[in-house]
Design a protein around this nucleic acid. Structure first.
Length: 348
DNA sequence: ATTCCACGGGAAAGCATGGACC
DNA sequence: GGTCCATGCTTTCCCGTGGAAT
């Protein structure tokens, strides 16, 4: 519904989407060069080196990696590269299946009576020339065994993308860890204010009508986003939508200020909408209590739903809610409390 | 000091689902 | 159409922890 109004200010809504990568990707030259050195052997048909890409959220890891893959494709036809996110493909089977899809030799449907081991050997058979596989959000992997599968496929180079190096490495077997020690490590840092402003300006230039935003607006947004480009872009998008729905012709500092909590609420809403019936009920219980003990939370949850899941299962739901950033836990053992994350008290 | 018990999380087994193969 | 089988979700059983009760 917003689009009707938004047209007045927006010429290309795509610039506000997560996967929009500008034609000229800037401010990450050193990181791109490093990663490129590891990967570019594929252009001449040589095996690429493995790589780690680390950095906080919104620091450009995903965009830079995708940009580089595109750039490699421009320099050579018919490269085999595959990008997948472990957020959606989190099990061994799902990852292997996705890689096979990338190779173009996947069995018919995703949910298939073909075992993970069988998928693995099909990958080994299918890789007859150097391949690059990017595993984004690799810290979301349910079990990292699959890295072992991929690592043992000759000619297949893996690029692991995650927030923190130690979080991923700690979960690997020592054998795999030491073999990955040769991988190129590329560290991303938070954007500084100027870079963030430039990134926003690029979006504005491509997707907004002239004079909708001023440099001061962008600085304001960049300042609030604290080095996180994803946040910055989302806040800008929300602010523009807000301004458009109110019939304004340009942004104001006041609109930006209102957009900040709105953008964060929106993010939480979309996460909440993705919850299943039981996780939703549990979240509602925790959220309406503000803070609650595990036992009490379970009792109330069980009252709320028709067929309550077991306590054990509900513990897993809690871990998921924590993973989604909707809930935090405090204390140990008996003193444990679940706390809902609301708009005002953000984690970090 | 000893026992109790709320809690978290690993392991294994049961079950429903739906693709693969005949 | 019928059978086989792998996955993913779930329950059941269990053990380690550490603060509270005895």
């Amino acid at each position: 519904m917003g689009t009707l109004y938004a047209d007045a200010l927006v010429t290309d809504p795509a610039v506000f989407q997560e996967d929009w990568v500008p034609a000229d990707f800037r401010h990450r030259d050193a990181e791109l060069n490093l990663l490129s050195t590891a990967l570019e052997p594929v252009i001449s048909g040589e095996p690429a080196g493995d790589a780690f890409v680390w950095g906080p959220s919104g620091s450009g890891k995903t965009s830079a990696t995708r940009y580089l893959l595109d750039a490699l494709h421009e320099r050579a036809d018919g490269l085999d590269t595959h990008y997948l996110s472990c957020w959606t493909d989190r099990t061994r089977h799902a990852v292997l299946y996705s890689v096979l899809e990338g190779l173009g030799t996947a069995p018919g449907k995703r949910r298939t009576a073909v075992s993970a081991g069988e998928l693995r050997s099909r990958i080994e058979d299918g890789v007859d020339r150097p391949v690059v596989v990017v595993l984004d959000e690799v810290d979301q992997l349910e079990s990292p065994d699959v890295l072992y599968d991929l690592y043992h496929t000759p000619g297949l180079a893996i690029v692991l993308v995650a927030n923190r190096e130690d979080q991923v490495l700690a979960r690997l077997e020592p054998r795999l860890r030491s073999r990955l020690a040769n991988a190129t490590s590329v560290q991303f840092d938070r954007y500084d204010l100027d870079a963030l402003v430039a990134i926003l300006a690029q979006r504005a230039e491509h997707g907004l009508r002239p004079d909708v935003v001023s440099r001061a607006d962008l600085e304001h947004v960049a300042d609030v986003a604290a080095g996180d480009a994803r946040d910055a872009i989302r806040i800008l998008a929300t602010a523009v939508r807000l301004a458009a729905s109110e019939g304004a012709e340009s942004l104001s500092p006041e609109t930006v200020d209102r957009a900040v909590p709105a953008a964060r609420t929106e993010l939480r809403e979309t996460r909440r909408e993705r919850l299943g019936e039981h996780q939703y009920a549990l979240y509602t219980v925790i959220s309406s209590a503000g803070e609650i003990s595990p036992g009490e939370a379970y009792e109330r949850y069980a009252d709320r739903v028709e067929e309550p899941r077991s306590r054990r299962r509900v513990r897993d739901y809690v871990s998921k809610l924590v993973e989604y950033g909707l809930v935090t836990v405090h204390g140990q053992n008996r003193g444990r409390r679940y706390r809902a994350v609301d708009g005002e008290t953000r984690t970090k």
